[in-house]
């Protein structure tokens, strides 16, 4: 099974990359779950035609009881992707990290993986590994590989370096490892060179090169990924290539 956690600086395009990768995997015939682990709870919105799923934290806050079925906290989106959002606490209160831990415990109790039997699970994680809750997706049983999304911008590379160090800090037999970098281009001067320098220094591979494209914005305005909106476009092709690569590697590992 493909189990990925996607990290990166806030606003760098993690949710866009995650949703497009999920959509590409689904289009290639895989049964996919995407779990947004960000209080913004907008990771899966473009898989759902712009209509968001109720985040788990909202469900718990409003009902004061736990759901009995996965269907109560999920929605099926493009390509039959099962979409879940952890959500977060009331802004300024509570603990977002605890929200992720509680959601994961709940999904385990509801036997999400046993019942849904996915081929791929993607965790879209807020910015940085800021506390225990945000490390939960890379624990044993969850993601086995981490993809870091970065552009050539200095602060994005800085965050990418922090994430790589944090994941390395947890590196032992059962934790996820950084598989590579998704270069999400932002039209920065010498962008490829900058990202490649970081990749070389960190011993990481640039596993995908996503061009700066208006297609992404165009289809997101319609509540879609580019995979759904225009599967033939160059951006979509890059996501398909990444998805196929991950599928092939997963087959080899089996």
């Amino acid at each position: 099974m493909i189990k990925l956690a996607i990290y990166g600086k806030g606003g760098i395009g993690k949710s866009t990359c995650t949703a497009n990768l999920a959509a590409a995997l689904a289009s290639l015939g895989k049964r996919v779950i995407q779990i947004g682990c960000d209080p913004k709870a907008d990771s899966t919105i473009n898989l759902l035609g712009g209509t968001p799923v109720t985040p788990v934290m909202n469900y718990l806050r409003e009902r004061d009881e736990e759901p009995e079925k996965i269907e109560e906290i999920s929605k099926v989106g493009f390509g039959n992707i099962l979409c879940i959002e952890t959500g977060g606490p009331t802004p300024g209160l509570g603990c977002a990290g605890r929200g992720i831990i509680s959601t994961f415990s709940l999904l385990e109790e509801l036997e999400l993986f046993e019942k849904y039997k996915p081929d791929a699970v993607l965790y879209d994680v807020l910015g940085d590994v800021v506390c225990g809750g945000f490390a939960a997706p890379i624990r044993e049983g969850y993601a086995s590989q981490v993809l870091i999304v970065t552009s050539g911008e200095k602060m994005a590379l800085y965050a990418a370096n922090n994430i790589n160090s944090a994941v390395k800090n947890f590196e032992d037999r059962s934790y996820a490892r950084v598989r590579g970098i998704i270069m999400n281009r932002r039209s920065v001067e010498n962008e490829e060179e900058k990202v490649q320098t970081f990749a070389d220094k960190s011993g990481l591979e640039i596993i995908a090169d996503i061009p700066r494209s208006n297609d992404i914005i165009k289809y997101e305005d319609m509540g879609k990924t580019v995979i759904e909106g225009d599967p033939e476009c160059e951006t979509a092709k890059r996501f398909f290539e990444l998805a196929q690569k991950l599928i092939d590697e997963d087959k080899e590992n089996d």
């Binding site: 603990c95 990290g97 605890r98 992720i100 831990i101 506390c131 225990g132 809750g133 490390a135 939960a136 624990r139 044993e140 947890f170 032992d172 059962s174 934790y175």
Partner: peptide, 13 residues
Amino acid sequence: DALLGTDMERVCR
């Protein structure tokens, strides 16, 4: 620890 989110399985190892 519920708030710290310690992976106790890992700590135990």
